[in-house]
Design a protein around this nucleic acid. Structure first.
Length: 97
DNA sequence: CACCTGACTGTCA
DNA sequence: ATGACAGCCAGGT
């Protein structure tokens, strides 16, 4: 994918405040032409040891995306004060921007 | 080149 | 509310 767009995606994720989340689609719209799937791909391809708060990216339906790191993601979000309702959804007030 | 596969989404039954 | 589905499109086979 276009390296500039990739950089935009990572920069946006890096700026998500602690205790807040945002969706793949929202991030995509903030970039110059990326789609939600491209955001997902960019996250999947992250090297280990990076500093990005990847766990603050969730789906538009306010749930965690279906992937192998979902368990860790849930823990890390709970650790920073984000609550999940009985159906595994996050309150809209937690969304950023 | 054709076809398949997703860390997704908006729409609709 | 909930699930199915058609768009989506870069990468891999």
């Amino acid at each position: 994918m276009n390296p500039l767009v990739r950089e935009q995606i990572l920069t946006i994720i890096a700026s998500i405040p602690e205790g807040r989340v945002t969706s793949y689609g929202r991030i995509a719209k903030m970039t110059d032409g990326a789609t939600a799937r491209m955001v997902a791909r960019a996250l999947r391809d992250l090297p280990s040891g990076h500093e990005l708060p990847w766990f603050r990216v969730v789906t538009s339906s306010r749930k965690l995306a279906d992937h192998s790191g979902a368990d860790e993601q849930r823990r890390r979000l709970i650790d920073e004060g984000i609550a999940f309702d009985v159906r595994g959804r996050i309150s809209v007030e937690r969304f950023w921007p």
